[in-house]
Design a protein around this nucleic acid. Structure first.
Length: 271
DNA sequence: TGTCAGGTCCTCA
DNA sequence: TGAGGACCTGAC
């Protein structure tokens, strides 16, 4: 299926560290595992050539996943108008988007991400999916969807340890034990949603922010990590202090601070 | 062989 | 209130 898009670079977005399951194929296309299907995308300029294990509502699914219904040009213009000095950074990120991913998968993936590297995170997420997720055959190959809450709720910390998650095993179990209390998180303000997530032992400010940004479409949260701290300290002459950086981001970038932080992360990592 | 990774928790001043 | 160490483990 051909899908026309604007301001999107699939490879840039899928390998920016937002998702952990994308695979670069030898023909240049990218295979990725979404909540309910496997997709393969070949990008030719503004045209995506998409194959999928499931063609139901495929165009809508792709538009939703890449957040293509949101006008990033307008947001970027507003951001630049309010902060002229970020223009060159925003211009470099004009084909970048915040993916709309499954909140449950984001919860477990970002718990695994703490003090970890992307390769190992992907390995653990893929192994957990292979053990507990639903198998999908696509282009004669086996893939595994990320398991549902029902499929994981009785897994023990010892079992999680088998997938290389290390000391984070008990944090994942804590998340599963408290997952049902998070069902109304969409109704909470961002501040309260962060508080609710951080009640779970093993979820700190960074992981909670990532879960809200990538799993719940909250563009006003800002996951501040080592890369972003480095960028802020270098470019804004700001102290390397969590509170100072938080206040600065909130004042400067408001409702889209999460997006700006991602631009910073993205441009800093690619330098 | 040692260091590091997109953090969090705990202890101690 | 915040600084500093411990924590799993695989990749480099």
């Amino acid at each position: 299926m051909k899908i026309e898009v604007n301001n999107l670079n699939v490879e840039e977005v899928l390998f920016s560290g937002e998702c952990f399951r994308a695979i670069k194929e030898s023909d240049g296309s990218i295979t990725n595992i979404l909540k309910d299907r496997v997709i393969n995308i070949k990008q030719d300029g503004n045209t995506l050539i998409v194959e999928s294990s499931n063609y139901d509502n495929l165009k809508e699914v792709i538009y939703d996943y890449f957040d293509l219904n949101r006008d990033y040009n307008e947001i970027n213009d507003t951001l630049i108008n309010n902060n002229k000095n970020i223009k060159s950074m925003v211009d470099k990120c004009k084909n970048y988007r915040i993916l709309n991913q499954d909140s449950f998968e984001m919860g477990i993936s970002y718990i695994i991400s703490q003090n970890n590297n992307v390769k190992r995170i992907s390995k653990s997420v893929n192994e957990i999916s292979k053990k507990y997720g639903k198998k999908v055959i696509f282009k004669n190959k086996e893939y595994y969807l990320f398991p549902t809450y029902e499929e994981l709720k009785n897994v023990t910390s010892e079992e999680f340890r088998n997938f290389g998650v290390g000391f984070r095993d008990k944090y994942i179990v804590n998340y599963l034990n408290n997952y049902e209390s998070l069902k109304d998180i969409d109704k909470l303000s961002t501040k309260d949603a962060l508080k609710e997530l951080m009640k779970i032992k093993g979820i700190g400010l960074k992981v909670a922010s990532c879960i809200l940004l990538f799993g719940y479409r909250r563009l006003d949260v800002f996951p501040i990590d080592t890369w972003v701290k480095q960028y802020m300290v270098e470019n804004y002459n700001i102290k390397n202090n969590q509170k100072d950086i938080e206040n600065f981001a909130r004042d400067k970038f408001g409702e889209y601070s999460g997006l700006v932080i991602q631009y910073m992360f993205h441009s800093q990592r690619n330098m």
